[in-house]
Nucleic acid binder design. Structure first.
Lengths: 235, 235
DNA sequence: CCTGCAATTATGTCTATACATTAATGGCAA
DNA sequence: TTGCCATTAATGTATAGACATAATTGCAGG
């Protein structure tokens, strides 16, 4: 009820962006229009827009207007590594090899799968990332088809599902678990290393708003990869 | 020259905080005082302070004033894990066992050590973290005595240097490298596992402003620990 | 001594207005 | 057509003032 007006304006626009109602690149109403809509002064809508700009959700350009920001592949906060980009960025040849791809219902015994699937099915993908022909990581991924219906039509012969998702479905929230494990038979086979070799295990869930998008588990050859994250005070 | 005034005010206060001139908890000048100092309107200093508050550097309370924020042990952005707190938080008994502690000059052959040391010496610490008597992680740490002179007097028989640093020397920037490695002889000995066991290797550098504070390398027993990071859109 | 009310003070929100800055746009001239 | 320039529409910065809100502080009364 009594939330400050600029907060309310901010939240309404934010909701429209997160829900996808306002697509990336879309122009949002100019300040004068918002002034009229909310019956307030320009400073007030300006404050809401500035705050959205500070959070990186919108981009403002003089004379042109305010626009929904295009999702940055590299988040300010953490590099969610796009392996394809990283490998090619190092001048190596990238390849993704699809091993399995099925659509199935969530396993009712696994609460995380049920939560991710929502009211739809899951797309389960397995494959291996190669750099210069050498296996770099093995990947098992679940994607909610309720959240990303376009994905069903997508062919992952060569493009990695991670890269596709980053481009097409911006996330707003992510949780990453990192551990070291010895490679089991399956992973060792994918990566071409001895059983028990130290591997970096990364499990990541991403959400858009509060809708789950994907859950991915990756095993990296320990010696060939490391993960770097840099943090600074928020601006 | 032509930076907006509210930006200039913001930067000057920020600098005073990062340099340590304004200690955590210190009260900063009230808005009217800043108005006079900069000869501007209240909205202008307010904007600068609001921006600092949004970045988490200051905390504002009505009637009371604005204060330099106490460093949050858990950064909004990443849990830089304080092992002691995490272990006791799980109801286990924490212990840190110091293995070595020397003050030495930086190795001139290692650029990172020289950069970290600045014009002073380095304190090198080695030890093992235990949870319920079981080794959890082995740690090798370098601390810049130029940045943290108080540390020379500190006794690390029982408290972990990481916990001490978190409390006493807030960082503003951090870089973390994570990889999986097989345990070498030294680490395996510390952790009481077989040579070659998969370990999570974490290397972290932290800075305050642009002065290096510490460089730490930790090896975790792969099976016993994992690292979780959660990210959301910045507020 | 404690309790509760009231005065005070600092920040929070908002308005209305002015001028600055930037860049998209459209028209004019080469 | 092409290139340039003036126009103009948008945001950026700033002022001055009003009223709202919260919390500290001190005072009065039990």
């Amino acid at each position: 009820m009594s939330a400050p007006l600029h907060e309310r304006i901010r939240r309404e626009i934010e909701a429209a962006i997160l829900s996808g109602e306002l697509q990336p690149g879309a122009r949002l109403p100019v300040e004068h229009e918002l002034m009229e809509r909310y019956g307030c002064a320009r400073m007030t809508v300006s404050k809401a827009l500035q705050s959205l700009a500070a959070a990186g959700l919108v981009e403002r350009r003089k004379r042109a207007g305010s626009f929904v920001a295009r999702p940055r592949v590299h988040s300010m906060v953490l590099d969610i590594p796009d392996l394809e980009q990283e490998v090619t960025g190092r001048g190596q040849v990238y390849r993704f090899e699809l091993a399995r791809r099925i659509v199935r219902a969530p396993d009712p015994a696994r609460a995380d799968e049920v939560a991710l699937a929502g009211r739809g099915d899951l797309l389960a993908i397995e494959g291996v990332h190669f750099a210069d022909g050498v296996p770099l990581a093995s990947e098992q991924r679940l994607v909610s088809l309720a959240a990303v219906p376009e994905l069903a039509a997508q062919d992952f012969g060569r493009v990695s599902p991670g890269a596709w998702l980053l481009k097409h479905v911006p996330w707003t929230e992510a949780e990453t678990r990192i551990a070291a494990v010895g490679a089991d038979r399956l992973v060792a086979g994918h990566l071409g290393v001895a059983d028990g070799t130290a591997c970096l295990f990364v499990e990541r869930r991403t959400w858009r708003g509060d809708e789950g998008i994907t859950l991915v588990r990756q095993h990296f050859v320990g010696a060939a990869y490391d993960l770097v994250a840099r943090f600074g005070a928020a601006r």
